[in-house]
Nucleic acid binder design. Structure first.
Lengths: 342, 342
DNA sequence: TTGAAAGCGCTAACAA
DNA sequence: TTGTTAGCGCTTTCAA
């Protein structure tokens, strides 16, 4: 069993060298003879020595850990992303410290304070509300997930990884157009959410290119992005007599709420209304009907994030990296109309 | 902006006191006049002082952090549990460091080594394969989730929290019996998984009490607990001509795979076969037909875990606490036969 | 190639 | 009530 008590001192004594030499061997620093190294490694092995990360961190002025801030880790997108992020960082000896903010700005401030106090080597911030300008003043490498970040002038300590949201909007537009939709509706997030606004814009643009116009009154901002919000928004739209024959819902949960509302009112999907979701969560293939959706790749995002974070921590980046991860359309029954069931 | 550079020294100087006094005020330790306290707090405020957790941890011989080891955080049960666990610990100033092991014993060893090196204050281990006897020798408080732990004699540093698995088995048995099932089948985990074995045993016992017997040949151990395993196991059972009229699947994913296999073969649920799942994941209400299942309460488990961990860390426990969290039957269409659609 | 020693920022024992 | 100081375990000059 790893004995918590052993220190460099013990190892040094056991190996018959100084603590400095032990440290050199551990960190591959400076020079030492092969013989010395062997003796030290042997002592480490025998004593089950575990370098104290607290002491090392104090000395180096930073912990071998990265902070991860997400709205809610039980969101499938984030939890899947974190799996690969964690694996990638762990392989390089970095641990991850996780916080959920539930989009609460105050909680977010507390998390950042806690991470500062822990002197983490970097911060991965997903979909945070925090002001980027504030972050830039910090000197700790920060990587934003799913977040529009001004590319230039932020220096080497700010990077970002996100899905190709322009492609998302475009693919959704193409799919609904292919279904022959003439009056498409959008269920998006609360107004002002950059990522979803990009998608909506791109959606409208591509529709226009295809000769379909997106009417402002059919762009709906539900209070949240969950199932009930989708359900209620569509129910309200039907009640208000809003006329639509296609839906682009910016989360699958919104889409599934929409499907339920439509079914309740006897509106047929895809015959009367075609529906495209976004994310491709596990649920999507089980909805009634199974949901066509724009799949994100959270695993890819996580491993890319790990890679970039490691580069930033190592000081290898002259400039922040800003990466777009491809999305793809997953066609299921909710858009299977005659013309595209090839 | 939190300035990373400020130390107790600066604060002490600014407040016109010694570093010891600053430390006392911060930690509510020892005595100090109200006036001194005010001056110190003021200085802390003005300088945006953030105590260095690395230094504090080194001095105290332990970090203000708890390690969390799970098979895979993208498993809904764990991610939901972690949300409340994290919140509960954060409120007490503890961060959580997370690892995924994917049930790999070697990875698990590495994680424990890493946590030891970080001198975490405690470890929450979910469904781990690690030997408890090994853990007992460690002096760090360890809390097992979903894990049978011998209650006595482990001392104050080992606790456990899990669902009431005996109740799970009983409820499933009652539900299938109520459906009139005479030849129930069980889809469980790989043999030797303690938690699921408890459920199976309790299931069989309650069935017996109700006059139904569980035939060994209808207890099936699929290779994994996911959708394909459930699908393949049921398909194989049908192919083998196994006769059954009810299924207790020990995860909802297994259950959903079973539903799909049954549908493919034209077996009607619930008319021909009634199905009960376990966990109540988000998906369960969307299956075809919607799945009756035994709901676990991961949020409750997480917050209880936080509470117990805090007690252990504070040294308030004479004995480890071993808590059972209630489960409940959520009845949906997969068991709605005439006799119990009340 | 190796060792001695300073010091990272903090807390706590001891003195005053 | 407050201050002085040792030392947690490590890395890294500086000297040898």
């Amino acid at each position: 069993m790893t004995d918590t008590r052993v220190t460099v001192r013990e190892v040094a004594r056991a190996a018959g060298v100084s603590v400095a030499t032990v440290s050199r061997v551990i960190n591959h620093n400076g020079r030492f003879s092969a013989q010395t190294e062997a003796r030290v490694r042997d002592a480490i092995e025998r004593l089950h020595y575990q370098p104290n990360q607290l002491a090392r961190g104090l000395r180096q002025q930073r912990a071998e850990a990265v902070g991860v801030i997400v709205p809610n880790i039980s969101n499938e997108f984030f939890s899947r992303m974190i799996v690969t992020l964690q694996a990638g960082l762990f392989a390089a000896g970095l641990s991850i410290v996780i916080y959920n903010t539930n989009h609460d700005p105050d909680m977010e401030r507390q998390c950042h304070a806690s991470l500062a106090a822990q002197r983490v080597s970097g911060i991965v911030s997903a979909n945070s509300l925090e002001d980027v300008r504030v972050a830039v003043r910090r000197d700790v490498p920060t990587l934003y997930i799913d977040r529009e970040v001004p590319e230039g002038g932020l220096g080497p300590n700010v990077s970002s990884v996100m899905s190709d949201n322009v492609a998302s909007g475009r693919l959704a537009a193409q799919e609904l157009a292919r279904c022959g939709c003439a009056r498409p509706m959008v269920l998006t997030a609360t107004a002002g959410f950059p990522v979803t606004e990009v998608r909506t814009r791109s959606f409208a643009q591509e529709l226009a290119r295809l000769g379909v116009s997106l009417d402002e009154k059919r762009v709906i901002h539900p209070p949240a992005t969950d199932f009930p919000s989708g359900h209620d928004a569509v129910t309200a739209a039907l009640d208000a007599g809003l006329d639509f024959d296609g839906v682009f819902a910016q989360t699958d949960r919104l889409a599934m709420g929409a499907l339920e509302a439509l079914r309740e009112r006897g509106v047929r999907v895809p015959q009367d209304v075609a529906v495209v979701g976004h994310d491709d969560i596990l649920l999507a293939r089980f909805s009634r009907p199974p949901l066509t959706t724009i799949a994100q790749d959270p695993e890819r995002i996580g491993s890319l994030a790990a890679q970039i974070m490691l580069q930033m921590v190592a000081g290898e980046l002259e400039q922040g990296r800003h990466e777009l991860v491809p999305v793809r359309l997953v066609r299921r029954e909710s858009t299977m109309r005659g013309q595209n069931v090839a």
